[in-house]
């Protein structure tokens, strides 16, 4: 080789090109990652808005008004409606008739 500087010089240039190339690819990947992250973030933000909107729409006070309007024959359960299983089987309890009917429905008996 006529000049010993040429080889390192060429290598340096090649290395520079390789580094630039890698750097460029990294920056492209970074941009892609950034855009994906932004997409995720955007999706999360939209989800948050929808969730907040859902909560706003299912506000108990609003549901109460809607239930009164569209389900006039129905109401919330009352403590009197709550009985134990033993009470359900007790003869003197007025729920007996209903439980018989229930057992008929469950077992499929017909009187």
């Amino acid at each position: 080789m006529r000049n010993p500087v040429v080889v390192p010089f060429v290598l340096l240039i090649l290395l520079g090109i390789a580094v630039s190339r890698v750097k460029y690819e990294v920056s492209v990947l970074r941009k892609t990652l950034q855009s994906i992250n932004m997409e995720i973030e955007k999706g999360n933000d939209q989800l948050r808005v929808l969730r907040a909107e859902w909560c706003h729409l299912t506000n108990p006070e609003r549901l109460k008004i809607l239930a009164a309007k569209y389900l006039p024959d129905m109401g919330p359960a009352n403590p009197k409606n709550i009985i134990t299983y033993d009470q359900l089987l007790h003869d003197s309890y007025p729920v007996k008739k209903r439980s018989n009917k229930l057992s008929q429905l469950v077992i499929g008996e017909k009187k």
Binding site: D45, R48, V49, R51, A52, T58
Partner: peptide, 30 residues
Amino acid sequence: VINNTTYNLINTKRADIVDRNGAVLASSIV
């Protein structure tokens, strides 16, 4: 490029607060 993208966002986002059944009580929306 990075600076330009972050410049367009003020990050005041906070964690949601939810009740025991997951109903959102406080949220940050865009």
